[in-house]
């Protein structure tokens, strides 16, 4: 066992040199490399985490936008549906109103045409009846229709009760102008004088009579003294005929009120 102190010193120096060299070539590079690698890994992990968070945030934002779009779309669809419903209701109402107006117009036209037709029919039928009656009267009774009419009117005037005659007399006293006599047909002078005589006998001698023709009476006579009127005419028969025609035309539906025959 011997110690060579020179060798000891040399070995100490050798060892310190080796420490320095290994620190230079081994420990420092290795530790630095490991530290950098750990740092890199940590950095990449952090980046990955950040990227992931960013991606999640993006996904959240996109989802929110999508939901907002969906909500907006639903809202717009609902609005459009409401508008369509309102438009449809308005159009339907317009169409119904238009149809109703057309129906009313059509009904009015129909009514007018029916009334015109009825009036024509009444006139023609009345004249036809008068012609027939006149011809029959002339052929078989040797008299004209005006004479018969005057005789009938005179009879009816004579058949008036006392109260109605008084009314006519008082009306004649109050009246300023002449009495008015309307007839559906032209009366001959003889017939007129018969009627005037009958009026003088029943109402008063001083009454003047003015003769007029009124086609609306068709066949008949109307005496107007002041506010009092005495009438006998074929109008009531024609009104009845008109009522019957209305019933036929409407198929038993609506009835037009037929004008009642005046007193007489």
């Amino acid at each position: 066992m011997q110690i060579d102190w020179l060798t000891v010193v040399a070995q100490i120096v050798n060892f310190l040199v080796l420490v320095w060299l290994l620190q230079r070539f081994l420990y420092r590079p290795i530790i630095r490399a490991m530290a950098r690698r750990e740092e890199r890994i940590a950095t990449r992990l952090a980046e990955a985490q950040a990227a992931r968070e960013a991606a999640e945030a993006d996904a959240d934002r996109v989802r929110e936008q999508q939901e907002a779009l969906e909500a907006r779309r639903e809202e717009m669809l609902g609005e459009a549906r409401r508008e369509v419903a309102a438009l449809r209701a308005r159009l339907e109402a317009d169409i119904e109103a238009e149809i109703e107006a057309k129906r009313r117009t059509w009904n009015a036209h129909l009514q007018d045409e029916r009334e015109a037709f009825t009036a024509r029919l009444r006139q023609r039928a009345g004249h036809q009846v008068i012609d027939i009656v006149g011809r029959v009267l002339r052929d078989y009774a040797g008299s004209d229709l005006g004479g018969q009419l005057a005789a009938t009117f005179a009879d009816r005037l004579a058949a008036l009760d006392a109260g109605e005659r008084d009314k006519l007399k008082r009306a004649a006293e109050r009246a300023e102008g002449p009495a008015r006599l309307d007839s559906g047909i032209a009366l001959k002078p003889g017939t007129r004088s018969r009627i005037t005589r009958a009026i003088h006998e029943c109402v008063g001698r001083e009454i003047e009579v003015a003769y007029h023709e009124d086609d609306a009476l068709i066949l008949g006579i109307r005496l107007t003294i002041g506010e009092q009127t005495v009438e006998w005419s074929a109008a009531r028969f024609l009104h009845r005929l008109e009522t019957t025609l209305d019933e036929v035309i409407e198929g038993g539906g609506r009835h037009r009120p037929s004008p009642a025959p005046a007193t007489g």
Binding site: Q2, I3, V8, V9, A10, Q11, I12, N14
Partner: peptide
């Protein structure tokens, strides 16, 4: 295996 070396290391 040299006492000089081990002594040097121990002195270190």
């Amino acid at each position: 295996g040299s006492l000089s070396t081990t002594a040097a290391l121990a002195i270190c």
